[in-house]
């Protein structure tokens, strides 16, 4: 199990994957909004999405998990 984490505090703008999807390393899986900037979140590794833990509008801190990979 691997977690894709937020790298900074901000609000989730969009989650681009859903449970069951396959993601590649380096793929953009979500977009955050922070400091009025769109901040892409990329997956550090390849894997199948086991769960989406946050959704659009949620506040997350630096280090909070957004997506769980199986």
């Amino acid at each position: 199990m691997k977690l894709i984490k937020s790298e900074m505090a901000g609000t989730v703008l969009e989650v681009k994957v859903k449970a069951g999807d396959w993601v590649n390393a380096g793929q953009e899986v979500a977009v955050m909004e922070s400091m009025k900037m769109e901040v892409p979140v990329v997956s550090p590794s390849a894997g199948k999405v086991a769960a989406v833990l946050k959704s659009a509008g949620d506040f997350v801190n630096d280090g909070d998990a957004l997506i769980e990979l199986a």
């Binding site: 790298e7 900074m8 922070s34 400091m35 900037m37 769109e38 901040v39 892409p40």
Partner: peptide
């Protein structure tokens, strides 16, 4: 670097 963390300074 706008590509990482919006280019914000930490």
């Amino acid at each position: 670097q706008p590509l990482v963390k919006g280019g914000v300074i930490f």
